[in-house]
Amino acid sequence: MTDPVIRISDMNKWFGTFHVLRDINLQVAAGEKIVICGPSGSGKSTLIRCLNRLEQHQEGTIEVEGVSLDGSLKNLESIRSNVGMVFQQFNLFPHMSVLENCTLAPIWVKQKTKQEAEALARQFLERVRIPDQADKYPGQLSGGQQQRVAIARALCMNPDIMLFDEPTSALDPEMIKEVLDVMVELAEDGMTMLCVTHEMGFARQVADRVIFMDEGEIVEENEPEAFFSNPQNERTKMFLSQVLSH
């Protein structure tokens, strides 16, 4: 195995006095796809948000591409631009067109020229299959289209790692597939992905490992086949029976 791109050791985090993440240990290799699941409030979002320091942990270490995330960090912005993130609520910039959403960060953070950025943006919009929506505003698009724009926007920064926080949970059933298709393609292209989702079909199809969290801990971790067919932990079994029953 090559050197892991993400290395989390003995990481703990509190919100005030609330111990939200407990003794997290996790290593992710380049190109690996990890699916994280677990009940609501178990700390899934918090965990992946620690990876680009949207949240700060208090104990233990997190290394992303060899750089340790801690208070002494000088160039947080450059780390962040290497780690793309897609949110449940899309979080597109509503005052800008789709194209501007995609070119803003390449221009202002990566100092690309407008032409370069636009060419890149169009290429990625093509890849998420909405090249013809480039001049529309986010408010004019369906949820599925918005989420695909959000993915394209993240990809425009050429990230090495992509984080997804329940990217399909806010979508109507008709639109979930179009977003998942894009994510599957991305996975096939070899992107390193950490994905919080309850789409078990997606987990089976692309995940190298599935992680189950509860109460701020990683309870179980396994390859998808083994994880679904033969969960080791009572808690996991209960959760899976609830998720898979509908």
């Binding site: 680009n52 949207l54 912005e77 450059s78 962040r80 631009s81 780690v83 793309g84 993130m85 949110f87 609520q89 979080n91 597109l92 910039f93 803003l104 960060a105 202002w108 953070v109 990566k110 959000a150 926007r153 993240a154 920064m157």
Partner: peptide
């Protein structure tokens, strides 16, 4: 302005 706007901006590397 929703918190998500700040987070999306931060995640893209904006200061």
């Amino acid at each position: 302005i929703p918190k998500g706007q700040y987070e999306a901006a931060a995640a893209l590397g904006f200061g």
